[in-house]
């Protein structure tokens, strides 16, 4: 299991909550959720702009955490383990959502004859437009590049921690991160000049 640094008191608290949750104590599990949910939600919001999608990731993450609690034997790597589950679930949802939204959009266009609005910049403010451009560029990243980018720039994890969570080497994290940032730089710069 991977380790994400925590302070001693936090680790003790997690250890106690974990032990009680494993015995079926609902209140302890709720406290565990309360402690860990902001970071899970942050990961989810790095993948999705929409709160509803992020909420689904949050719920599914803790559903999986709960079902697999018996597999955790100590609290040291708990945070990293939850990070990893959340990232995997966010990737799964992201893939499924991409397929679904393509399908839904096509279906709606066919049914209702609505024109595609994705290229209608007049009504948007400049800043919103820039962030939107960034988001569009982030959408083009591969799932691994996206995961590294979100964990680095939204969750502010160290590259070592990201390597542990994604189970890849530090060198791979660095090169993936460089590719991701380079791609975003190119896209954002091209948009700015257009």
């Amino acid at each position: 299991m991977n380790t994400i640094p925590q302070c001693e008191s936090q680790r003790d608290e997690l250890r106690e909550l974990l032990a009680r949750s494993q015995k079926g104590d609902a209140r302890a599990f709720e406290s565990l959720v309360r402690l860990l949910q902001p970071m899970v939600f942050q990961i989810a919001l790095g993948f999705f702009r929409d709160h509803d999608d992020a909420m689904e990731v949050l719920q599914d993450t803790f559903l999986r955490v709960y079902r697999n609690l018996h597999k955790v034997d100590h609290a040291v790597g708990l945070r990293g383990w939850v990070f990893r589950i959340a990232t995997n679930i966010a990737i799964d949802h992201y893939r499924a959502r991409r397929k679904r939204s393509d399908r839904e959009r096509k279906l709606t266009l066919i049914q209702n004859g609505i024109t595609d609005r994705s290229h209608n910049p007049e009504e948007r403010s400049e800043q919103a437009e820039r962030v939107k451009r960034l988001q569009a560029a982030v959408d083009q990243l591969s799932t691994r590049e996206r995961s590294v980018f979100v964990l680095k720039h939204i969750n502010h994890l160290k590259m070592k921690e990201i390597a542990a969570i994604l189970d890849i080497s530090l060198g791979t994290v660095k090169s993936t991160h460089f590719r991701a940032v380079n791609h975003l730089r190119r896209e954002v710069a091209a948009g700015g000049e257009a």
């Binding site: 609902a26 599990f29 709720e30 959720v33 309360r34 949910q37 803790f62 559903l63 955490v65 709960y66």
Partner: peptide
């Protein structure tokens, strides 16, 4: 947290 716990 309550909602997520209930769901899980």
């Amino acid at each position: 947290a309550k909602q997520v716990t209930r769901h899980a």
